[in-house]
């Protein structure tokens, strides 16, 4: 299973993982060996088999439409990296 640097860069960008140049090389090798192992599952004949998302065949429980959560902004923001006036702050996003 061959992976090239461009693919790793594209995936790393989708995942927003910054990779230094030497790291990228290392992940190319790792991904190749992992995907080679993963490819073994293609030997299994799954014709006509429905994909299974959850191991137990149950359906979604629904929640009554009532407000149960009180404001806990101070608690939730106490460990936030950057806040002001109740807002979370990030570098200026250019639109």
């Amino acid at each position: 299973m061959a992976i090239d640097a461009e693919q790793v860069r594209r995936i790393a960008h989708l995942a927003r993982i910054g990779l230094a140049a030497d790291e990228a090389d290392r992940y190319i090798g790792d991904l190749e060996s992992i995907l080679t192992m993963v490819e073994r599952m293609h030997a299994v004949n799954t014709a006509g088999v429905q994909p299974l998302a959850h191991p137990i065949d149950v359906t979604q429980r629904l929640r009554p439409d009532v407000v149960t959560e009180a404001d806990q902004r101070e608690s939730y923001q106490s460990d936030a990296p950057a806040v002001a006036n109740g807002f979370y702050l990030v570098p200026r996003v250019v639109e």
Binding site: Q7, V8, I11, A12, L14, A15, R16, I17, G18, L19, Y27, D30, L31, I34, L35, V38
Partner: peptide, 19 residues
């Protein structure tokens, strides 16, 4: 994310993103 996650976590995030 690069600093916060270790090698194995990044490896799995990349594998999962690829898949």
């Amino acid at each position: 994310r690069s600093e916060g996650f270790g090698t194995e976590v990044k490896r799995r995030i990349l594998t999962g993103t690829y898949a």
